[in-house]
Amino acid sequence: MSSLVGSLSPTMKPTLDHLLTAIDADPHVFSVCRIQAGWRMTFPVFQVATVHFVLRGAGHFQIGMRPATSFAAPSVLIVPAGESHWVGETGDQAKVRDAADQCALLGDGLVEFTAGSGDGDTLMLCGALTAPHHGALNFLDLLQAPVATDAVTNCIPGSVFDAMTNEIANAGLGTQAMCQALMKQGLIALLRGRWAGSDHGELLAHALHHPRLSRAIAVVIENPAAGHTVESLASLAGMSRASFSDHFSRAFGQSPIDFVQKARLRIAARLLRGTDLPIKVIAQSVGYAGPRPFSRAFLAAYGHSPSGYRDMAKSDEFKLLPQPDSPRGV
């Protein structure tokens, strides 16, 4: 978080703190899952988002018809509402068990689901994220689910996983409440880790005051190459085109399309400074059809061509100056 906080103005730091506490990340921990090697546990379609904290083991994770993703403990798996999913072994040889087929009461309201003998090569603590309250920021909107993420690289303390494992091993009075508190801590740390090192923290902090716009902002930041239009962003915000444009312009002092272009160029500038990717690849990764239109837009925004900006960024003089993350007018 230090790199993100350090880049914010003093007046914005409290706002970002409020944003982290205002998101809707109140999980309801409902089960412990144990999956033996060679087995696959399938889950029904839930009407709320599902979260699995992987405390031990490794395997694969698939949502709906999407490609399966590998994972290894410690990690976090997040499934959007309305999606079926499974966790465990891939391939036709895997033995399959529905989560509810073999279950037992573990203690203090927790249910234990088992696939296999019960020894459980993979151990998970599972919870559900309730629908956001009116006006609250949706955790999954900001994080962009579905997610299968390594916990260490996303700044979730190992002590969170250790404490979860200890609670499960000694289940009793207060275990469910403790696990829910630990899961919320982990989710907040996960979101904070996704923002750390990002140059969009201040913009996302502004979204605290405009929660209906937060999803559109997050989608642009997470996927700048998509063909964003005012209509598509308005739909994400649950607003009409005219209302969305008006609210967005008044909130951020620019039109939605201006914001999309500036966000793309801002990400491109970071890639030019921090990677050796070809300019053509960078152009495509931020939504430009080719290097020529990208170069024209970049030159107009930063006063340098992409190659000139990259060369300048390598100089010792540039490293001593505040880095121009933002296009002109942002």
Rank of each mutant, 00 (worst) to 15 (best):
Q185K: 13
F43H: 00
G135W: 09
G174S: 06
A73V: 03
A81Q: 00
G127D: 08
W39E: 02
S285D: 13
H247R: 15
A269C: 06
A225E: 14
A73D: 02
A104L: 08
A205Y: 03
D325W: 14
Q176S: 13
I78T: 07
R264P: 07
A269V: 05
Q180G: 12
G118A: 09
L77D: 06
P80C: 01
M1Q: 11
A313Q: 09
H60S: 15
N223A: 13
P291T: 13
V281G: 01
Q36Y: 05
A242Y: 09
L320S: 14
L125P: 04
S232M: 04
F294V: 04
A289L: 11
R215N: 11
A226W: 12
I156A: 03
H206E: 12
F61L: 08
G201I: 00
L208C: 04
G308W: 05
V286W: 08
F244S: 10
S326C: 09
Q62V: 08
H209Q: 10
D150V: 06
G193C: 07
S117M: 05
S198R: 11
D101L: 11
W39R: 01
F61G: 07
A163L: 10
Q62P: 02
D141R: 00
G253T: 11
T153M: 07
C126N: 13
R194E: 13
G308K: 06
D101T: 14
F139T: 03
E167A: 15
Y309Q: 06
L191K: 09
F139W: 10
F252G: 10
P74N: 04
P14S: 04
I267G: 02
H60F: 12
A300I: 01
S235T: 13
M65V: 07
C126I: 00
Q36I: 00
A145G: 14
P224L: 06
A49L: 00
E89L: 04
M1H: 13
